[in-house]
């Protein structure tokens, strides 16, 4: 089975690069090929200017990387300190256990066994195991999936501090919001290929408009309404999904016009929301599917 094909990406030093996409898009396969854990069937990978090699060269490269894998469960019976001491022992150069505990703010849990940690704490410990080697390049595979909002923000803060110290980050996520906040550039993946690449701002700009209006009607959508909506000034795209979705350039002009038009046709609104266009909207525009449902 082919999980990923025709990928051509370059991540610059000091950059935070995000691989985005729904589950099964091939993000994990991609990041594991880059991490040297999965061999690609074809193609070249260069990390920090060197290709992956077996033996001493590979180990020398690993000294410079920090890796957090999506599914790793650390040993339950070990304490936080013991786990970090173990990972630290694999590297020639590393942070002390205390330093790395401070980086991820787990000092008060140092003596706790891994099994007693909350989901967010476990994830911070996993990131700590990646940071302990003082890496130049940090790989994070869905670091915040399944975490509560507070834990997510804590992790974002850890990543920001790592970048502020000059580190390069490559992360995968299926939260577009996360990518918008953290990443300099993102690649949106779907079905194993990159369907969009650029800064979050650039990608949102491809929608041609900054606002999204979503509404639904109490009754069926009458014939001709879609065409009428497409013809309205400031509307760049109309999509019918669960309700109707308009991409608009100037919300303050289009919204009153829309409401007036609906009233004239005596159509009753069941719901109406508006938001700034996000990477979610980019994904919907590119694939016709909602990111979260898939």
């Amino acid at each position: 089975m082919v999980a990923v094909k025709g990928l051509d990406l370059t991540v610059g030093a000091g950059e935070c690069f995000g691989l985005l996409g729904p589950n099964g898009a091939g993000k994990t396969t991609t990041i594991e090929i880059l991490e040297g854990l999965t061999l690609p069937d074809s193609g070249d990978v260069e990390i920090l200017g060197t290709p992956w090699r077996e033996g001493a060269a590979g180990r020398a490269l690993r000294e410079r990387l920090g890796i957090q894998l999506q599914e790793t469960q650390l040993a339950d019976k070990l304490t936080v300190t013991e786990t970090l001491a173990l990972f630290r022992s694999f590297y020639k150069q590393s942070h002390t256990v205390d330093e790395v505990l401070a980086l991820v703010e787990l000092e008060e849990k140092r003596k706790a066994r891994v099994v007693t940690l909350s989901g967010g704490q476990k994830q911070r410990l996993a990131v700590a195991c990646a940071l302990v080697s003082k890496p130049e390049l940090l790989f994070l595979d869905e670091p915040t999936t399944g975490l509560d909002p507070q834990s997510r923000r804590q992790l974002w803060e850890i990543i920001r501090r790592f970048r502020a110290a000059g580190g390069t980050v490559l992360l995968t996520t299926h939260y577009m919001e996360e990518a918008e906040r953290l990443c300099d550039r993102v690649a949106i993946m779907d079905h194993g290929t990159v369907i969009a690449l650029g800064t979050p701002r650039e990608l949102i700009a491809t929608l041609g408009a900054e606002h999204v209006v979503e509404f639904s009607l109490s009754d069926a959508v009458p014939d001709g309404l879609m065409d009428m909506l497409r013809g309205m000034t400031g509307v760049t795209a109309v999509r019918a999904g669960v309700g109707l979705s308009l991409t608009v350039t100037e919300l303050h002009r289009t919204l009153p016009a829309l409401l007036a038009e609906l009233q004239r046709r005596t159509l009753e609104l069941a719901s109406l929301t508006t938001h700034h266009a996000t990477l979610d909207d980019v994904f919907v525009a590119l694939t016709g599917r909602q990111l979260r449902d898939t």
């Binding site: 854990l37 690993r62 650390l74 694999f90």
Partner: peptide
């Protein structure tokens, strides 16, 4: 157990021999 919990894979991502 280490293999099942993907811990083995995690070790492979370090310079451990």
């Amino acid at each position: 157990q280490a293999r099942q919990k993907k811990l083995l894979k995690r070790y492979m991502a370090t310079p451990m021999r």
